[in-house]
Deep mutational scan, measured.
Amino acid sequence: MGSVRTNRYSIVSSEEDGMKLATMAVANGFGNGKSKVHTRQQCRSRFVKKDGHCNVQFINVGEKGQRYLADIFTTCVDIRWRWMLVIFCLAFVLSWLFFGCVFWLIALLHGDLDTDYKDDDDKSKVSKACVSEVNSFTAAFLFSIETQTTIGYGFRCVTDECPIAVFMVVFQSIVGCIIDAFIIGAVMAKMAKPKKRNETLVFSHNAVIAMRDGKLCLMWRVGNLRKSHLVEAHVRAQLLKSRITSEGEYIPLDQIDINVGFDSGIDRIFLVSPITIVHEIDEDSPLYDLSKQDIDNADFEIVVILEGMVEATAMTTQCRSSYLANEILWGHRYEPVLFEEKHYYKVDYSRFHKTYEVPNTPLCSARDLAEKKYILSNANSFCYENEVALTSKEEEEDSENGVPESTSTDSPPGIDLHNQASVPLEPRPLRRESEIGSRR
């Protein structure tokens, strides 16, 4: 089982795998120059863009038009607004034209077009017409509009002379109601789609790998820009990579689940303020055997998904993003964004995407760390350097704002901070800030 798991979770494809794949392509008759073999020097295209759209195009789909027309309502909801407006206008105009032609044909076959009612006051002739005051196609078209929109100006009306005319008036009224219901329903469904809710759900630009509770963890940050909550919010993550099976089958995008606390339930989050999602790199993680150097040379993509129900409509929305291997910062942490004021908490989104480097973060893999092949620094050293990194950030910001350097908390000259780390230190809580992250 261990060997199978290692093969499945191998992220960085070796040169031997690339040569094996190329040999397979030639042997199977696919070596026509169009096949692409992804190596370390040639990274694959992003499968999920940063804005959440999937970078996929469908080609050679059989009976595409028929399949889309069979699900016309979903098609109308998914198309762009400009095409929705075109369909909206065409549906009414074509129905008016169709029934206008029908009423014109009825008048033509009944002989109503030969009668001039402007110079004739004989009401008996008017009563013999199928539709009064309809003696041309324009008049028939206007009567069709008046019937379907129930305008009723009063000059044109159907008589009991022709039952077919009466039937067409009733039929057009029913068709008009159906068109109204369909168009209004599609427009309302399109307006109520929770897709735009994703514009106020954000992911951090970069993911980070750092120590948390004595273990290497992959972390990324999510935030909600609205005050309205995302009900039943939960997160998922998958690692996408290519691999070759033991039988020699090439899988271009193998999807591997990344555990973010599904078993323990901590994948469900209360997204009021930005939260750091934590994936513990343990023996079940696809990143277990990867060191910093392996991450730098790897070719994979981590897709992160945030799902929840919109509070206003109770409709489920899904926000997506992805991180390539070069977008994962090893040995970094996110800057705090949640600050405790006197009577409330304040979230500073200008710090949302910012990170700071944490010294002495192990550069080895989580496996080597678990097997004690890498000796961690003293816990006080880690905490102290973590505090120094934050303090230096604040000093830089104070210097930019014009604060005198004498007010900063610099260490005395001639003292090495790293050498001082081995000395037991008193706890130094942050002056006014605390970061709330997901705790395992």
Rank of each mutant, 00 (worst) to 15 (best):
T6Q: 13
N259Q: 13
F300N: 00
F98L: 13
Q293R: 07
H343K: 11
F88D: 11
A25E: 14
L90F: 04
T317H: 13
K241S: 09
Y356N: 09
G308K: 09
A27N: 13
P427D: 15
P413Y: 09
F73A: 14
Q66T: 12
S35P: 11
G62R: 04
Y334F: 07
G185P: 03
A314H: 13
V423C: 14
A237Y: 01
Q420N: 09
D299C: 04
P429F: 11
E433F: 08
S285A: 00
A25K: 09
V304R: 00
G52S: 03
D213R: 15
F171H: 01
P427K: 04
A165I: 03
R351P: 06
E133I: 03
N28H: 10
N206R: 10
F73L: 06
C162L: 07
R226L: 14
I164K: 00
K346Y: 03
P336L: 03
H205I: 04
Q293I: 09
D112P: 01
V37A: 11
E307T: 11
S285H: 00
V347P: 00
Y323C: 06
V126K: 03
G414S: 12
A107L: 05
F270P: 08
K193M: 06
N206F: 06
N360P: 00
N55H: 04
F99M: 02
W220Y: 07
E283H: 13
Q172L: 02
T39E: 13
Q41I: 11
S392Y: 04
F47E: 02
D257P: 11
Q42I: 11
V337Y: 07
F203E: 01
C364K: 02
A25D: 06
V260T: 06
V278S: 07
E394P: 04
E307A: 05
D416I: 11
A186P: 04
I72Y: 07
E340M: 10
V222C: 13
T409K: 09
R428F: 12
L425Y: 14
C383V: 12
T23S: 14
C76R: 12
L113W: 02
T409L: 06
E357P: 08
C101K: 02
E199F: 06
K34T: 13
T276Y: 08
V403L: 11
S136Q: 05
I79E: 04
Q41N: 11
D180P: 08
L239G: 00
V304L: 12
R40V: 12
K128Y: 08
A91G: 13
T74H: 12
C43V: 14
C89Q: 05
T75D: 07
T39G: 11
R44A: 15
F182A: 02
L390H: 15
A389D: 11
L109N: 15
F92N: 06
A314E: 14
G152F: 03
I275T: 07
L239N: 01
V278W: 05
T159A: 03
C130A: 02
G65T: 12
M168Q: 01
V12L: 02
N7T: 14
S144H: 01
S35W: 07
I295Y: 03
F103S: 02
K64L: 13
N135M: 09
G176I: 02
G248E: 14
I79T: 10
D299N: 03
M309G: 13
R197A: 12
E335P: 01
P286D: 01
N60A: 10
V304N: 02
V102R: 00
E133C: 05
C157I: 09
G33T: 13
T159W: 02
E199K: 10
H343V: 06
D289W: 03
A165D: 02
V48S: 02
V134T: 03
F92D: 03
F73C: 13
L338C: 14
T74R: 10
G33C: 11
V158K: 02
I164Q: 14
Q42P: 12
S45L: 06
E249G: 13
R320T: 10
A233W: 13
P336Y: 10
C76K: 12
Q420W: 04
T245H: 14
L113P: 02
H205F: 05
S322V: 00
A189V: 15
D122L: 02
P359Q: 14
I375G: 15
V131Y: 04
K34D: 15
M309S: 12
L376C: 13
G261I: 08
L376Y: 10
E385R: 11
R46N: 01
H418Y: 09
A22K: 13
E335F: 04
L216V: 01
S406P: 12
I164V: 09
D51N: 09
T409F: 09
T6Y: 03
E395G: 07
I275S: 10
N206A: 08
I251L: 12
E396N: 10
C177K: 14
I151G: 15
A139Y: 00
L216N: 00
M84V: 07
S285L: 00
G52A: 02
A22S: 13
Y344F: 09
R226T: 04
E311D: 05
R367Q: 03
Q148C: 02
K34P: 14
T23W: 07
V93W: 01
E385T: 04
S350D: 11
M315A: 06
S3H: 05
E385C: 03
E63I: 12
S291D: 11
I151D: 03
P194Y: 04
P336G: 11
Q255D: 03
T138Q: 05
L97S: 02
K118C: 01
N297H: 13
I11M: 13
I277M: 11
R268L: 07
M309H: 13
E394Q: 12
E397T: 11
F58G: 12
Y9K: 13
R197G: 10
I244H: 15
I244Q: 12
M211W: 04
P427I: 13
G308Y: 05
T355P: 02
G65W: 15
G176R: 03
G100S: 04
K227H: 07
G308N: 04
R431S: 15
F143L: 05
A70R: 15
